[in-house]
Design a protein around this nucleic acid. Structure first.
Length: 507
DNA sequence: TATGAGGGCGCC
DNA sequence: AAACGGCGCCCTCATA
């Protein structure tokens, strides 16, 4: 038995010293290690912390004393008993424990940065930022701290006297200066467009371009830390640096992503679960239309639009599809008419109508959501298909806002949490297969971004790797609908292009 | 000088 | 008035 905290760090240390990690942990029977932090996280993923000190106090009602060996043993006994009671042993021993070593390896590998490229980007941003600041000061009549919402708000709405009609207030009562606000008042003063651009560049510079350079090692690689106990739903989080929120989409974001590069002789391949949360929702709810759409490989948002607008597929416009997409995402999050109106630009009345229409078309989704909300109220927790659990005691709160918040979490957790399980299971299986085939040197799993895995793969091994990995990902977990993976390949993270299955067949 | 709340924003 | 789920990190500013 190997019950302890922070096994990931201990495994990394063992690897560094070229020592073996004790025993294959993948079977519940005779499992050789037991991470106490992860165990208590599975019992309650909303704990403040998962340290021996905190848990000892809370669960044993006594101070943790590292010099007394029985402290860990008692925590272990409590955790094991509860894991059994909650039927979480399978998930714990077969998924979370084997995952620790996988994460340790990914963290140790790191991902290579083009540090020179980042440096050029920094210079360019610096130049653009100072030019933008000058223009802003000129419009404003005097310099001020653009990064201070307080000073900026005073500048816009007092000194420049911009009309604040239709602009929301912050929690503290001040007029907001966020992007939404700036877009609302964009046509009311010429300074606003400079501010929007300044915000974007400043964010990129201070949150990504500068810190990433600072964190790169001598070989240019950065190593994130995956937090296995970091979320309430079962997902992983990524820290210092967070590599799960690197910008994507616009030109500047692409420039940044281009600075994440594959080693010489290697390429990046990304594997993206397609619409995994909606597929999970379709599967859980058993909604026939949604299931049929996925099983026939239809464009899910287009299909949704056709239903909501009562039009044949061929008459669905891009605008209709866009609305349906927002609706689909919103449903997973338990969105209300207010939020939908805001995101879509519709009036609240119209938004209400669309949501009603949606649930009328996909009746079983509504039924499932009502069931899960009732579960939260009745038991004070919800679980996903694998028993992963989240306590939602607020579901019966007398404060309506609090209860509603818990209900939204109840709707979301079983979906987000099952999607998380699926990718974790795939990661463990992929890692095992790589070792079995002794491909460690040609297939390197680097990043996991919720529904995506990024690998660095030797060029000669590309086709084989795609076959192995997408095969495992698509079959890692059986849903009531098919599971699909999108594969992209490239020499850097900013220039990935489709890796077509036909490419394999033609070789 | 350190800390934490608030405002803000990047990703899935 | 009213936030649609899950994260981590930046800067400012008040307070210690």
């Amino acid at each position: 038995m190997f019950a302890d905290f922070n096994l990931k760090e201990k495994f990394k240390e063992l690897k560094k010293q070229d020592k073996k990690i004790p025993k294959d942990p993948s079977a519940a029977l005779g499992a050789s290690y037991f991470d106490l932090g992860v165990a208590f996280w599975m019992l309650n993923p909303d704990e403040k912390e998962y340290t021996a000190e905190f848990l000892s106090k809370k669960y044993l009602n006594k101070e943790y004393n590292p010099s007394v060996g029985s402290g860990l043993k008692q925590l272990y006994e409590v955790a094991l008993k509860k894991l059994k009671e909650y039927k979480l042993e399978g998930l714990f021993y077969d998924v979370e424990m084997p995952l620790i070593e996988v994460l340790a390896e990914m963290e140790s590998l790191g991902v290579k940065l083009n540090v020179g490229g980042l440096n050029s980007l920094e210079k360019k941003l610096e130049k653009n930022l100072s030019e933008l600041a000058k223009k802003i000061y000129k419009e404003a009549g005097a310099p001020f701290n653009i990064n201070s919402p307080k000073q900026l708000g005073e500048m816009l709405f007092q000194k420049l006297g911009i009309d604040a009609a239709g602009v929301k207030k912050t929690k503290g009562g001040a007029i907001s200066t966020d992007v939404d606000t700036l877009l609302t008042i964009k046509d009311r003063h010429p300074v606003v467009k400079y501010l929007l651009e300044y915000r974007e560049l400043f964010k990129l510079q201070t949150t990504y371009v500068r810190p990433l350079q600072a964190l790169a090692d001598k070989k240019g690689r950065v190593r994130t830390t995956y937090i296995q106990t970091g979320t309430s739903t079962g997902r992983l989080s990524s820290q210092n640096p967070n590599l799960q929120n690197i910008p994507i989409g616009n030109n500047l974001a692409t420039e940044l992503r281009k600075c994440f590069v594959a080693e010489k002789g290697y390429s990046f391949i990304s594997f993206d679960y397609s619409q995994i949360e909606l597929r999970v929702l379709a599967s859980l709810s058993g909604d026939p239309k949604m299931m049929e759409a996925f099983n026939n490989d239809l464009d899910i948002h287009k299909m949704t639009a056709a239903n909501v607008f009562n039009k044949p597929l061929r008459e669905v416009t891009p605008e209709m599809r866009r609305l349906a997409k927002t609706l689909n995402f919103g449903v997973v999050y338990g969105m209300g008419a207010n939020a939908f109106a805001k995101t879509s630009g519709l009036s609240v009345t119209e938004a209400r109508k669309f949501i009603d229409e949606y649930f009328n078309d996909f009746k079983k989704i509504k039924v499932w959501q009502e069931e899960i909300k009732a579960q939260a109220r009745t038991f004070g927790y919800v679980t996903n298909l694998n028993g992963r659990r989240r306590w939602l005691l607020q579901a019966t709160s007398m404060f309506r806002g609090e209860a509603a918040e818990a209900e939204r979490a109840a709707i979301n957790m079983p979906v987000q949490g099952l999607a998380a399980d699926i990718i974790k299971i795939a990661m463990v299986k992929i890692s095992k297969e790589i070792k079995k085939q002794k491909l460690e040197n040609s297939i390197k799993m680097l990043l996991t971004i919720h529904d995506e895995l990024l690998f660095e793969i030797k060029d000669e091994a590309l086709e084989e790797a795609v076959k192995i990995i997408s095969g495992i990902m698509e079959s890692a977990y059986e849903l009531e609908v098919s599971v699909k993976v999108t594969v992209k390949v490239g020499k850097n993270w900013g220039e990935l292009s489709a890796f077509l299955k036909s490419d394999i067949l033609m070789i």
